[in-house]
Design a protein around this nucleic acid. Structure first.
Length: 575
RNA sequence: GGACCUGUGGUGCAGCCUGGAGUGCACGCCGCCCUGUCAAGGCGGAGGUCGCGGGUUCAAAUCCCGUCAGGUCCGCCA
């Protein structure tokens, strides 16, 4: 039907009779004797010269047979890859007419997202969406090649699966054959892949669809894709090396540049220096500890277990209203307040300009200036409170003040390792698994599992790229005795364990190998490479923040007969 | 569950704060003109439930309340 794609026509084709197919972009008519039609497909645009009038409109689908000719001198277009040539003596076949589209198929025109999503099939024609989805395919391919090269075996796991009441809320699917019973859509293939390890597939992977019924965000959809992998007889370092290979290959394919070595920092260092477990290493600005300097302070605002600061270079220029906004932001993040100090210089001596200055001792003022290494023109902001709160508030402010959009290069991967096994306690005072209940404690900390569980580190690790958490993984518990101790620490007795994870524990009795794995989000990775701050831009048919599909109208009501067949009935919403 | 922002011809905006005739801009669309344009150009034209409902007012796109939709964020996401 065609011999070349629109964007592929070049001077080397001059003289050839070719056939191209595509959509009408722009047409420029000059009376009844001459018209130019831009024919577009995903590769680009080629100009068709029609001697005479032509009855085509925007987005008509055409087949054009024509002779490639060099453009007359002075009429070439260096904006187009095909700008030195054009098609003459065109035979135009209208394959399909089209109504005027609701918006232009053109990246230069900004269109509100609801309109784009309602007519996604048109939006997908736009060059950006073509680029993004094709980039995604490239990344998928690079990942598959990398995993294959590392002897991983691709295996699919069920979407209709048993509920695994851990972590995020699952979607339920009513069973027709077993009325009143339900399948769950997996939040991840976690348990399935561990069963594959017991089944002897010592290196498994898949690009798996995962489903989580949690509120949506710019970086979260109900359904998303992960590179999911699990392997046996490996160390934590080996697993990270497998994943590193895949993500470096993906970055190289996507950007043309292979990022440098991936750094590794511990969770504790990340929290302490960056205030978050997903640090953005593209800019320096670290949290500076002033706790010791204010241990004996008389300043009420700083009388707290932890006092930490951020230095904002050049921040002394901030207006009062901007500073007020900063204070409000800190409060909205949970801080009681935020102290700020503009660093000044008089006669070569550094000082500070701040409402709190008159309450500081000379030693305290000196400490603030020295520890932060501030110079005139900088701004220092300080939060004092409990350790974790101070870190999280300043961690967020750090990104607010110094961060760039996630998608801007350079690409700085970082492994965050040695997460705590438990992340606080639940309402009944029982430690809650930070990753999941099958995460292997750090061997050095195993002895404290009963005496001081919250201090126990896990053999778990996250991969972070430019401040976005791409994914996480861990070495799993494969021995029953350790699993029992972890369950006990979490307050899960044998009966409850059997109820929730019986099939996994049962399988583990029959020779479970030591194993561990990882999973990272493809949507987030591709979004970053595509220069998007929003994963909907790399998903063909995404849902809105309220979980609606504006194209299909989903979710929608089921016909009564189908409801009856499934044995389900809606109940009025409780008020 | 909560906070904030947005909603005006097909599209993107301005108008709203400080109420006074659906007023304006750009693109698109329709018609006519135009033989080298390329986000073509010229002339003319059509196209509106100012998201929806209520209130205040002589008068509401504009002020108030509610509601719906979209977005960003908090909670949530082992």
């Amino acid at each position: 039907m065609r011999t070349l794609r629109c964007g592929e026509v070049r001077p080397l084709h001059v003289g050839e009779r070719i056939t191209v197919c595509g959509w009408v972009g722009k047409r420029r008519e000059h009376g009844e004797h001459l018209a130019f039609v831009d024919l577009r497909d995903y590769t680009g645009i080629v100009q068709c010269v029609v001697e005479g009038s032509v009855d085509v409109r925007s987005e008509y689908v055409l087949q054009v047979e024509g002779t490639v000719s060099a453009r007359p001198s002075g009429t070439t277009n260096d904006q187009l890859a095909t700008g030195e040539v054009e098609l003459h003596d065109c035979v135009v076949t209208v394959l399909n007419a089209a109504e005027p589209p609701p918006f232009a198929v053109d990246d230069r025109v900004e269109v509100d997202e609801p309109i784009r999503l309602k007519h996604r099939y048109i939006d997908l024609r736009r060059p950006k969406m073509q680029r993004n989805l094709r980039l995604r395919a490239q990344v998928n391919r690079a990942i598959r090649l990398a995993m294959d090269a590392q002897d991983f075996c691709e295996i699919e796991t069920p979407l209709l699966w048993a509920p695994t009441p851990e972590g995020s809320r699952e979607f339920a699917v009513p069973s027709r054959l077993h009325q009143g019973k339900f399948y769950s859509l997996p939040q991840s293939p976690q348990l399935a892949k561990q069963l594959l390890m017991v089944g002897g597939f010592d290196r498994y992977y898949q690009i798996a669809r995962c489903l989580r019924d949690e509120d949506l965000r710019a970086d979260r959809q109900f359904e998303f894709s992960q590179l999911d992998l699990e392997c046996s007889f490996v160390t934590e370092q080996e697993i990270r090396a497998f994943v590193t290979e895949a993500v470096l290959d993906a970055a190289e394919v996507a950007t043309g540049v292979r990022p440098g070595a991936v750094e590794t920092i511990t969770w504790a260092e990340a929290i302490d220096q960056y205030g978050t477990d997903k640090p953005d290493l593209r800019f320096e600005m670290r949290l500076i500890d002033l706790s010791a300097d204010f241990a004996e302070t008389e300043v009420k605002a700083f009388a707290a277990p932890t006092v930490k600061a951020l230095k904002v270079e050049g921040g002394a220029e901030f207006s009062r209203s901007r500073l007020d906004q900063l204070v409000d932001r800190a409060k909205s993040l949970g801080a009681k307040g935020l102290a700020w100090f503009k660093v000044t210089e008089h006669d070569g001596v550094l000082g500070v300009d701040s409402p709190l200055d008159r309450f500081l001792t000379d030693a305290e003022r000196a400490a603030v200036l020295d520890r932060t290494g501030a110079s005139a023109g900088d701004l220092i902001v300080i939060v004092a409170d409990e350790y974790r709160l101070v870190c999280s508030v300043l961690g967020t402010l750090r990104v607010d003040l110094g961060g760039a959009p996630v998608s801007e290069g350079p690409y700085r991967y970082v492994w965050v390792v040695d997460f705590p096994l438990f992340d606080g306690v639940d309402a009944e005072g029982r430690p809650e698994a930070a990753h999941h209940a099958f995460t292997m404690p750090h061997p050095e900390d195993l002895e404290r599992l009963e005496s001081d569980p919250l201090s126990v580190r896990a053999q778990s690790y996250d991969l972070v790229l430019n401040g976005w958490e791409l994914g996480s993984g861990s070495i799993r518990i494969h021995r029953f005795d350790i699993q029992q101790r972890v369950f006990a620490a979490m307050g899960i007795d044998a009966e409850e364990a059997e109820l929730r994870f019986g099939f996994l524990l049962g399988a583990f009795k029959y020779g479970a190998p030591p194993h561990g794995g990882f999973a990272f989000g493809i949507d987030r990775l591709v979004a970053i490479f595509a220069g998007e701050n929003n994963i909907r831009e790399v998903i063909a048919f995404p849902k809105t923040q309220s979980g609606a599909d504006l194209l299909t109208g989903a979710p929608s009501h089921l016909p009564a007969a189908q409801m009856a067949e499934l044995g389900i009935r809606p109940v009025p919403k409780a008020t």
